[in-house]
Design a protein around this nucleic acid. Structure first.
Lengths: 179, 179
DNA sequence: TTGAATGTTCAGTACTGATTGAACAAATGG
DNA sequence: CCATTTGTTCAATCAGTACTGAACATTCAA
């Protein structure tokens, strides 16, 4: 039996040809560019962008390839990447051969985690630099000191900010269920 | 008359050949890699890395080219980039023909400014996406809503964090002058 | 005015890294 | 067991971009 894949039912059917709502495709493309700016492959951004809009939220490997006009290989590689950095998850359904992907509930907190890693790396690099200048006068060290202290500060503060966000989220949710 | 350029006097003289303190060069290289990770050209990172260590803090165009074993062209392009994004500044001395470069006093706040721009861009992209889904049920919108609200939150909070950092910096400075 | 020192610009090169497409693997159903 | 669907892997291609080197511009000094 042949199973038809349908994406974005009744909003934008016709998954093929990427003639699929030009505005939506433009959005997808923009997300791609943003990802690129952030140092990730453009195609990974396209996938993420499409998964932000798609209905249903979960999309199969094949659907992604068709909508985004990309090769199966590319979809395979990029979904693996996105899963690895925690932005999407793979959904497998018993009795279904194909895999589905969807955005992870708290995808963005993964982003901040990555950012945190970078901050820590900067802090440690600065420490390394300071070690090289340990016999130099403080004036010489100042540039690296500033770099170090700022990143130590951020390393301390970002998680707190994250927490505050969680709390605000919860309250938002509560307010919605009340009204 | 010939003017000799000296960098890192009495710590690491011998500016040539980049045999210039292998550890320092390794540090420079690591900063280069970090910059690359952040989407900037590696050479711009090398320049920045060297300017974090160099003594005197200001280094001429020619010194940079020699220490980093890079072409004049590359130095010219990359210093322009670094100036443009606010990480270094050009120092010109009256009666001196050559230009000097050094790290800007508050270089890192420029970094956060850039980061802020990115956050805003993400927020606006999410808004654009939400507009495309304005006739969809809220469940569909949720992914984009989260993306939007988080970035709006960060857009609000990051400047405050920055302020707190400034304050902490000042206090640090005061404590130092007392002791 | 010429020559030396310094910078910039830009065309060409080299390299990296994304993307494709084909070959392969695995699972499913007849 | 075979054909079909689905997904992965990997070699080859393609595109973008960092970097070089040479030509040109500018400034200063003799």
């Amino acid at each position: 039996m042949v199973l038809l894949e349908l994406s974005n039912v009744n909003i934008n059917s016709n998954p093929s040809l990427s003639s699929n709502q030009p505005e939506q495709m433009q959005f997808v493309e923009e997300v791609g560019l943003m990802f690129e700016l952030a140092g990730l492959p453009r195609m990974s951004g396209r996938i993420f962008g499409w998964l932000l809009l798609s209905s249903p939220q979960r999309q199969s490997h094949g659907q992604l390839a068709e909508v985004l006009q990309a090769s199966k290989g590319s979809i395979s590689t990029m979904t693996r990447l996105l899963i690895q950095i925690g932005l999407i998850e793979r959904i497998s359904i018993p009795g279904e051969r194909r895999d589905y992907f969807q955005i992870r509930p708290n995808a963005w907190s993964q982003m901040t985690k990555q950012r945190m890693a970078q901050i820590t790396a900067f802090k440690e690099l600065a420490a390394k630099g300071l070690d090289l200048l340990k016999d130099s006068p403080p004036v010489q060290q100042q540039r690296l000191r500033e770099m170090h202290d700022l990143h130590a500060f951020l390393e301390r503060e970002m998680p707190l900010l994250d927490q505050r966000w969680e709390v605000e989220q919860q309250q938002q949710l509560k307010r919605e269920t009340v009204s």
